[in-house]
Amino acid sequence: MSARHFKELEVWQLAMILTKKIYELTSGFPREERYGLSSQLQRAAVSIPSNIAESNARTSTKDYARFVSIALGSSAELETQLLLSKELNLGDDGLRDEALLFCERSGQMLSRLHQALTHKLESDPRVPSPESRI
Rank of each mutant, 00 (worst) to 15 (best):
R58L: 09
L100W: 01
I22C: 04
K20D: 10
L84V: 14
S129A: 12
A44T: 09
R34N: 01
S111N: 14
R105W: 08
M16A: 05
P128T: 06
G73F: 03
I17V: 10
Y23D: 09
L83H: 14
R105V: 07
L83Y: 13
E122M: 12
G28L: 04
P30C: 01
R4G: 14
S85I: 01
F102Y: 15
L72D: 04
L78M: 11
R105P: 00
M16R: 12
S75R: 04
E87S: 15
V68E: 06
L83W: 11
Y64H: 15
S69C: 11
R66W: 03
S74G: 05
R112A: 15
E104Y: 04
K7G: 08
L84N: 04
E79H: 06
S2P: 06
L14F: 05
S123Y: 02
R126K: 02
S106W: 06
M109E: 10
G107W: 02
P130S: 12
E10L: 09
S50L: 09
K7E: 12
T118H: 11
L84I: 15
G28K: 09
S69G: 15
E79W: 03
K62S: 12
E77L: 15
L113C: 08
E32K: 03
Q108E: 13
F29V: 10
L14K: 11
T118G: 07
F6D: 05
V46Q: 04
G107M: 00
L110F: 11
E87A: 12
L82G: 08
Q81T: 08
L18T: 07
Q13T: 00
P125T: 06
T19P: 02
R112C: 06
I134T: 10
F102P: 02
A57L: 14
L121Q: 14
L14N: 05
N51E: 07
P49G: 04
S38I: 03
A45R: 03
A15E: 03
N56M: 09
N51Q: 11
P130Y: 13
N56T: 09
M16S: 06
D63P: 05
A65P: 02
I70A: 03
S129T: 15
K120F: 00
A44I: 10
A57S: 14
V11Y: 01
R66I: 03
E104N: 03
V46N: 02
A53R: 10
G28P: 02
L90C: 03
L83S: 07
S69H: 12
K86H: 06
A3E: 15
H114K: 15
M16V: 14
V127S: 03
S85C: 03
K62A: 12
Q81R: 10
E131N: 07
Y23K: 06
